[in-house]
């Protein structure tokens, strides 16, 4: 079994309303050092897969399903 942690984030140029509200809240609480917050999604995916083709398979899953290429980018870590 191989486990992958996949992060899906809004592209930097896309406004993130959630991140903005969290940032404002932190500011209200006195955390003035926080300059920006971007919210993202994280998926823990466990695969019964051949470790040689694993990256190709995860890329495909992200491109087709987990991320919307119009607004989001993704990155991942594979735990072997």
């Amino acid at each position: 079994m191989i486990r992958a942690t996949i992060y899906v984030t809004l592209k930097p140029e896309v406004l993130d309303p959630q991140g903005k509200v969290i940032k404002t809240t932190l500011d209200t609480l006195g955390y003035h050092n926080v300059k920006d917050v971007r919210a993202s999604k994280m998926f823990e995916v466990t695969l019964d897969a051949d470790s040689e083709n694993i990256e190709q398979e995860i890329d495909e899953i992200c491109d087709k399903v987990l991320a919307n290429p119009n607004i989001e980018i993704y990155s991942y870590r594979i735990h072997k």
């Binding site: 809004l10 896309v14 406004l15 309303p17 959630q18 509200v21 919307n68 119009n70 607004i71």
Partner: peptide, 17 residues
């Protein structure tokens, strides 16, 4: 329709949340 690709762009969370 946007997710399917029949229409361009995307619909995101309302700015006000």
């Amino acid at each position: 329709l946007t997710e399917t690709g029949l229409l361009p762009g995307a619909l995101m969370l309302n700015k006000s949340l």
